[in-house]
Design a protein around this nucleic acid. Structure first.
Lengths: 352, 352
DNA sequence: CTGAAAGCGCTTACAG
DNA sequence: CTGAAAGCGCTTACAG
């Protein structure tokens, strides 16, 4: 029965004043018990604790914070709550922060909304802000400058190359290099790129890794790689991969190995090839990226790359919390996480 | 460069007092601009706005709340941040609440932690609490009683049958009934249950729906359904489904249709059957539950049930926010969401 | 143990 | 427009 019937003392206990009245003690005394201060009779302590348990009264955190108590809140600004890896990072970060006594205030940060989100966090006097994902460069750099100006720690997860930002980012280049080397070892020499651009964006982006691995074997990336991304509307999903596969099927001198930007595209491509009567990995190899659960559920299972989300999130939390209390570090800290190749059944030796 | 160099006025502007000093106005005047009160010269307003934009100063929300301003915070208590549907609900709820001007405070609520989580929410004076998932009955009922005692609105998503709880729950029985009827129409008469118990737990639980559909065709659930769950450690995942399939393969008089508790189990089972040389849906049919993205990525695609997460979350938000300001409703409101059958390629006519 | 007081950062009347 | 004051709910000295 939602409406509280039993009206003992005040119907609602809202403050220590109400509560002290309810227990029959002075506000000061209640406050002392609440804060575990010495010099109180056990009997008094018990009386307060009992009433506390009965009424479920909790001191107003906002008043506490005004008096100088830490807020123990961290603002988390995510690009997007739709992609599985982002969601996993968020969930894991919440867990890690919780374990260290912080609560998480989570907001989605669409382009243009960054200002409001960060100001909202600031107004709540969060102790730090985490950005997860990829943002508009100028917008997020402005937000970070603001945070710095207020002495609020921050860390950016994923978005690499931001000026003055403490960053934890996945070395996707290393991941792709591992994939390409694995395929080179299997004899592959022509690679279809599914959603992966040819021009490198930064030293840790996928194309950089592909090219580095090829050049390491004295192969020319320009002739060894093929992309048909331009033929389809880019969606980075299952259907995009499937359509790409269909286009590749018709291509003369088709590559023997296909590198997906992510698992969805790779699985779509695998499906597309199978529908065209090709067998994976007998006729061609396919690889994904992210090591989502689905990789184990397809036939064949997918060779992919594990992001090491746990390491990423741990590093981010550590980097953020290390800044607490101390003066902010003079120059940005950038940490790179090296992902791990996960072998599945979708890659095999090239057949003459 | 993180450490702020330019020291114009105070190094850090922390309060309206600091800020007013910085702009060269009285605190009162600044406060008026901040709150859009009338009777101010445009020039003054502009001056304050400009300084506001430059410094990024935000009034302390905790002080505002002390003065009576609404916190606009909602506490969300999730059972678990690991299962995809729970994560999707959470993400969608955050979005819906955000759109209505509320920020979300998210905590995972493991058994025994409910008390601390809810008290934490209360101490921050959240305007409402949402529970997502399944909890220990006594624990969550105690928490809800506490919330009621404080006049804090709540809503429970998923956990059906709690005393005095406002609830939005999926009618899984209706979903399963739709699945079974679809299979009955295809001629199936023997059903393998994968992770679905035989005894109904409540009127909206899966077994209830299975039995209702069978009885509707004058069939006896006891003889029409088979479960082998007891043979394997229950994990509700891909491998559990796969192992169940292996056990069913060896069974004489094997069912022709298999109902998975969720998509993972169903996909695992499908894979298990295929590995044993059986073809889906030629030799047998398989169905899942939840309509996760993976259902479209398997071969064959999976017949499943869509939870209608959007409707659930909308209903939950509406139910919660309807309580704001008003006195709490005298008796609990329970809303049921009817899920939708999603046909895939994994179900087909039974073959003599 | 109690009680009165100051102060955290804000807003809101109320005089100037 | 300014300035002084009260009060939101708390804690923390400081006298009794």
């Amino acid at each position: 029965m939602p409406p509280p019937r039993k009206s003992e003392a005040p119907a609602f206990i809202r403050s220590t004043a109400d509560f002290a009245r309810h227990v029959g003690l002075a506000r000061t005394t209640v406050s002392r018990v609440l804060n575990g201060q010495p010099g109180l009779k056990q009997k008094t302590i018990d009386r307060v604790q009992k009433a506390l348990a009965e009424t479920g009264f909790t001191p107003n955190a906002h008043a506490l914070h005004l008096k100088g108590k830490r807020t123990s809140m961290i603002g988390i600004c995510v690009e997007d709550l739709a992609t599985p890896p982002a969601l996993r990072k968020l969930a894991m970060l919440q867990r890690v922060l919780r374990a260290r006594g912080f609560s998480s205030l989570i907001e989605v940060c669409t382009p243009g909304a960054g200002r409001d989100v960060v100001r909202h966090f600031q107004s709540l006097r969060v102790e730090g802000v985490v950005f997860i994902g990829h943002f508009l460069r100028e917008e997020i750099e402005a937000r970070i400058a603001e945070l710095n100006a207020h002495g609020t720690p921050h860390v950016v997860v994923d978005h690499f190359g931001l000026r003055n930002a403490h960053t934890v980012a996945l070395d996707r280049a290393a991941g792709m290099a591992a994939v390409v080397e694995h395929l080179l070892d299997l004899g592959h020499r022509r690679f279809g790129l599914l959603g992966i651009g040819k021009g490198p964006v930064s030293r840790i982006d996928r194309p950089t890794g592909v090219q580095a691995a090829l050049r390491g074997r004295r192969l020319d990336p320009a002739t060894c790689t093929v992309t048909l991304d331009h033929l389809h509307e880019r969606k980075n999903d299952f259907d995009f991969g499937r359509r790409l596969a269909a286009s590749f099927v018709a291509l003369p001198d088709r590559p023997t190995a296909f590198l997906g930007l992510n698992d969805e595209i790779a699985i779509g491509a695998q499906r597309g090839f199978q529908e065209a009567g090709l067998r994976v990995p007998r006729d061609l190899s396919v690889t994904g990226f992210n090591n989502q659960d689905i990789c184990q559920m397809t036939s064949p299972t997918l060779t992919t790359v594990d992001q090491g989300i746990e390491a990423t999130v741990e590093a981010a939390a550590e980097l953020l919390l290390a800044q607490l209390g101390k003066p902010l570090p003079a120059r940005p800290v950038v940490r790179t996480i090296v992902p791990r190749l996960v072998l599945g059944e979708s890659t095999g030796p090239v057949r003459g």
